[in-house]
């Protein structure tokens, strides 16, 4: 498959809280090729490196990207407005594996790791349980949109909304209610490690989406290294082409 690159119009912008934004970008050809879990590499005027941002939702015309201001580049990105264009390179990466829609899946997301799971909530609907973790009530995003698609449970670190604790706590609870065919997880490394450990203990296949500082996005520069184990040997794979979705047993968290 060929990669696509071009400037596409931002048709809608939402601001969730002080640092998290949602852009809807009209790019039919790219959107039609994108699967859940893939990402785009976004050029920001005045910066050398593109910024990899995972796709939150897609239809045949539009990609939705949800991102958080992390530094100067994403701050500049957040200043773009509807009507302006965004330079995207994509779709990139491997995406989440596809199970039959009736599969019982668990979507475990933490903070800015929550958005890429929304596309899966739409695929699996009521057969999915979303476990979403945030620092506090103020940093909550997309909870209503998940709830409209699937069984949705929220945890906050400080207990200001939902379950007081971490996503791992919600996962233990969910598993006590019944089995699952697969866990899809995206979030901070500590969370992913906790989820992967629980998955291992319960013998449930687990796929994790990871991030790393990136440049080309297509496997040419090799900067986005990720420790993985292949054939019993530890190697550096690359998030852009080997990932961003890895099997939790394969990636060293």
């Amino acid at each position: 498959m060929a990669y696509l690159q071009g400037s596409f119009p931002i048709i809608q912008k939402q601001q969730f809280n002080s640092d998290t934004y949602s852009f809807y970008i009209r790019c039919p050809e790219m959107a039609a090729q994108t699967v859940p879990g893939q990402f785009v590499n976004l050029k920001i005027p005045g910066f050398s490196l593109r910024r990899p941002i995972s796709v939150c939702q897609r239809d045949d015309e539009v990609l939705r990207l949800v991102f958080q201001i992390r530094g100067e580049g994403t701050k500049e990105l957040a200043a773009l407005e509807p009507g302006m264009k965004a330079d995207l390179l994509g779709p990139l990466g491997n995406g989440f594996p596809q199970l039959p829609p009736k599969a019982k899946v668990i979507l475990a997301g933490g903070g800015i790791g929550v958005p890429p799971l929304l596309a899966l909530a739409q695929v699996y609907g009521r057969n999915a349980t979303a476990l979403l973790g945030f620092r506090n009530k103020e940093s909550l995003i997309l909870e209503g949109e998940f709830a409209a698609e699937c069984d949705t449970r929220v945890a906050t670190d400080d207990g200001s909304f939902g379950y007081h604790g971490f996503v791992t706590g919600l996962l233990e609870r969910r598993l006590s209610e019944g089995p699952a065919d697969m866990i899809f997880a995206c979030g901070p490394l500590a969370m992913l490690k906790g989820i992967a450990d629980i998955a291992e203990k319960n013998q449930i296949p687990c796929k994790v989406s990871v991030e790393e500082r990136m440049a080309c996005g297509i496997g040419a520069c090799l900067v986005c290294a990720c420790r993985t184990v292949r054939d019993g040997k530890e190697i550096y794979s690359h998030v852009c082409t080997d990932g961003p979705v890895f099997d939790s047993r394969e990636v060293v968290l």
Binding site: L49, V223, A225
Partner: peptide, 21 residues
């Protein structure tokens, strides 16, 4: 090659430390 992070944005440029992977 070297452990990540292997790349950084700089004014009008970038740093890399891939380490000949």
């Amino acid at each position: 090659g070297n452990p990540p992070p292997r790349v950084a944005e700089t004014p009008s440029g970038m740093l890399n430390s891939v380490g000949l992977q």
